[in-house]
Design a protein around this nucleic acid. Structure first.
Length: 425
RNA sequence: GUGGGCGUAGCGUAGCGGUCAACGCGCCAGGUUGUGGCCCUGGAGAUCGAGGGUUCAAAUCCCUCCGUCCACCCCA
């Protein structure tokens, strides 16, 4: 089948039958934001392209080959946001939020875009839920952000994830670590995969998360960043760990964990599903103490998390987490003859006005066909308006579950349905 | 950007050289005169992803393109 148009490559339509999953994630996330004191912020889906080049990092794959960049009609270079943190930081600076009590806790929910080959759990337009706590470098805040993430997945029903944690230092100590890593790899380049040889040149930290089997022993023996942290970073990390222990968050120290975005400093973490797969991250975050200054603000520490809603949903399905169905209409109004249609419309309208979800049969079909529609709609009640009901100002109210029905006075319909609904719920 | 699998009605599939195509689900209409879910009957719906080639003959073989899925890369 090849229709004239289809959703662009790497994009999807979220159909009605998928919506319960989205609703579940959205409700859970926003409720927790409220509990943790985060306020919503919505930023544009496109921004000055250079915001991301500077924010995410000029050398990252995201900026170099995955960003949707375009020139607008005024000649400005714009980009669809590939993630949300840079936008939030820009907004923080632009609106002078450093004058608010710190930290400023913000969350966002919306689409992000990366031009990439689609595959399982990876789309060109995808949905990010994320939150940022800006203005404080206390490790207690790191712990709060991580606890929030852990709690989020627990409440969503993803109870078999793992939390990976690492520290990648700051501008103070990273150079010495890179020197050590370089020295370690220099004489091993012959026994390492070609990709790793490229990483050695381009982005040495990435050497640590190579998946090629032959590289594993070499990575295992590589020096861990933790051993090279400067005193301030080491202290920060130790404190964070003791907070997490106090909070009973089961984290795994992972010296291989590095992140693909340039702005991270110190704390980095990732939440991974149990199964080995290509997309083994549902959510990730970390501290980015240099970003706001990089974007033109005053030096401001911050930490945040972003999670992919589509990936959450993939995992909810894989784990067969039960999801509540969305509410269906309570009442379907059917009629025997065309003469009854105005009365049917009026009844449906009155029911809705009383807060009872009601739809009326349309399309001029036979009563039998209307009943079939009522059944397909999954309603609790069908209100039948036959000739006799019309003549006597009554309604034949049928309970679909067991077929029990009785003729009731029109004025009583609302009350009876409301009562029936209360008993069902 | 690289590699592999797959593309037949809305969905899931069969057919793999010879009546331009089958089945299940779904959809629509009936099964006597006012009624759902089960069952029965009938119907609509496919230029077999697109283009080209081989052949007397192609959904079935070959090529190209497109789409899709999976993996690499990267990341949420």
């Amino acid at each position: 089948m090849s229709p004239l148009y289809r959703a662009p490559r790497g994009t999807v339509d979220v159909l009605p039958q998928e919506q319960p999953y989205w609703e579940h994630v959205y409700q859970t996330a926003t409720h927790l934001c409220q509990l943790y004191g985060y306020s919503r912020i919505d930023t544009p889906v496109f921004e000055d392209a250079s915001l991301f080049a500077r924010g995410v990092g000029q050398t990252t794959d995201i900026v170099q080959k995955e960003m949707y960049v375009f020139q607008d009609r005024g000649g400005e270079m714009m980009a669809l946001r590939p993630e949300g943190t840079a936008n939030v930081c820009r907004a923080y600076i632009q609106h002078g939020m450093r004058n608010l009590p710190q930290p400023v806790r913000l969350y966002y929910w919306g689409p992000a875009f990366r031009y990439d080959r689609p595959q399982a759990g990876r789309q060109r337009q995808f949905t990010h839920f994320g939150y940022e706590a800006i203005g404080v470098d206390d490790p207690a805040l790191d712990a709060e952000v991580i606890e929030f993430a852990w709690r989020l997945y627990q409440e969503l029903g993803l109870t078999d994830l793992s939390l990976q944690l690492n520290s990648i230092g700051d501008p103070n100590c990273r150079p010495s670590y890179l020197t050590a890593l370089n020295a370690y790899y220099e004489d091993k380049l012959g026994s390492v995969c070609p990709d790793c040889r490229a990483r050695f040149q381009k982005n040495p930290l990435r050497l640590l998360d190579c998946k090629v089997e032959g590289c594993q022993p070499i990575i295992d023996a590589a020096p861990p960043f933790i051993d090279y942290l400067c005193e301030a970073c080491a202290h920060h990390f130790q404190e964070l760990c003791s907070y997490l222990e106090a909070l009973a968050i089961p984290y795994t120290l992972n010296p291989r964990l590095v992140r693909g975005l340039d702005y991270y400093t110190r704390t980095v973490f990732e939440i991974q599903p149990p199964e080995e797969g290509a997309q083994n991250t549902v959510g990730a975050g970390g501290r980015y103490d240099g970003l706001i200054e990089e974007l033109g603000g005053k030096p401001t520490p911050a930490i945040g998390l972003a999670t992919g809603v589509e990936r959450i949903i993939v995992n909810l399905k894989r784990a067969k987490v039960p999801i509540a169905a969305l509410d269906r209409p309570a009442v379907f109004v059917v009629y025997q003859t065309a003469a009854a249609r105005p009365t049917a419309a009026k009844l449906a309208s009155e029911l809705r006005r009383a807060g009872i979800a009601a739809v009326m049969a349309v399309g001029g079909r036979s009563l039998k066909a209307q009943m079939r529609q009522a059944d397909a709609a999954g309603v609790l009640y069908t209100a039948i308006l036959g000739k006799e009901e019309l003549a006597t100002d009554t309604v034949n109210l049928r309970r679909m579950e067991d077929g029990h029905q009785e003729r009731v006075a029109s004025k009583d319909v609302r009350r009876l349905i409301a009562k029936g609904l209360r008993q069902t719920r």
